[in-house]
Write a protein that binds this DNA or RNA. Structure first.
Lengths: 178, 178
DNA sequence: CTCCACTATTCACTGAGGGAATAGTGGACG
DNA sequence: CGTCCACTATTCCCTCAGTGAATAGTGGAG
């Protein structure tokens, strides 16, 4: 995943230790996939093994021992390269929504797929309203706004897809049962 | 992931063995996340362990031994439940695109984020054109069309987000450097 | 008769992800 | 003044996801 690159990015503003990285992650990508503490340390371990970060000393500041890590030159290059590389747009699709609808159609129950689509559409609409409302929160920073935009755009895409698919399934149903 | 449920779905139309499941998967979800053979067998192993599928006999038909699996009653119930459950819409976002832009902004190089966004937008536009063209392929079945619709909707969402984010970043840049 | 393609499965390994355990410090509160 | 809780910080363990290589049998092309 891109979690390791995000950690590199967070380290680019100066050395940090694991706990600090976890907090910085939560702050920077508040609505992203949650990152467990355990994962932070195992990911840092891999980054260290690969020479992208290195220990910048141990200290203790009114608490347990902690190890501070910093980017190596290689780490900085790697981050730079990642940031400069364009992502291949949609090489493949990965969506529970899509999988569910396709499976529902496979199991030869089109009316069931239809009712599922309708329910899912209602849930999406509700969530979209919530998000649109919360977008006008004045305490939001640039990252929050960008994330909210992203989520809204994709929920909207889901909704448009749900509508056209609903129509398509209904058509299919009519054709097979005239 | 939902791979295990998709396998259950493929088994709902009758017993199949591993290799057959892999082919059925590729046929049903042609543009979905690729599923390696190894993964099919390990997933089936877990499904068997959990009592959702069971061995329906071994045979050999002009080839090596093969084990056929079928849904158990529990497996059918589990599939049914999954199909009937509405997915929580966007509980969190998981996108390399979003992560990259946020990290680019964090590393305090707004003009860099801007040029990245512009490049990514070009790549997305090209891919969207390709997909729109291939959608009119007359050999496509309902699954293919639904998948194509889905991909197009989300590429379009990415594009709209890229545009507004590009604007936002440009604004930000102007504000900080008047 | 050998080599290749296809069917079918297993194995070994790394990474992702989550939960519980451990351990130290400081403050609240009776 | 003790103890209980919250917070900081890390480690450990376990399962699932995902990939590539290895193995093994059959049928057909040449």
């Amino acid at each position: 995943m891109s979690a390791s690159f995000v950690l590199l990015g967070l380290l680019s503003s100066g050395p940090k230790h694991g706990y600090e990285l976890k907090r910085a992650y939560d702050r920077s990508l508040p609505n992203a996939k949650p990152l467990a503490f355990g994962q932070v340390y195992s990911t840092i371990g891999r980054l260290e093994r690969d020479g992208l970060v290195e220990r910048a000393g141990q200290d203790r500041d009114g608490g347990p021992d902690r190890v501070t890590y910093e980017l190596t030159e290689l780490g900085r290059q790697t981050l730079d390269e990642w940031l400069g590389t364009v992502e291949p747009p949609a090489p493949y699709v990965s969506s529970v929504l899509l999988a569910k609808v396709v499976v529902a159609l496979l199991t030869a129950e089109p009316e069931r797929a239809g009712s599922y689509l309708a329910d899912q559409r209602a849930a999406h609409t509700t969530r979209l309203r919530e998000l649109t409302r919360s977008k006008h929160d004045p305490t939001a920073n640039i990252g929050d706004v960008i994330t909210a935009d992203f989520t809204i755009a994709h929920l909207d895409a889901d909704l448009r897809w749900l509508r056209t698919t609903l129509d398509r399934v209904a058509e299919l149903h009519q054709e097979t049962q005239p």
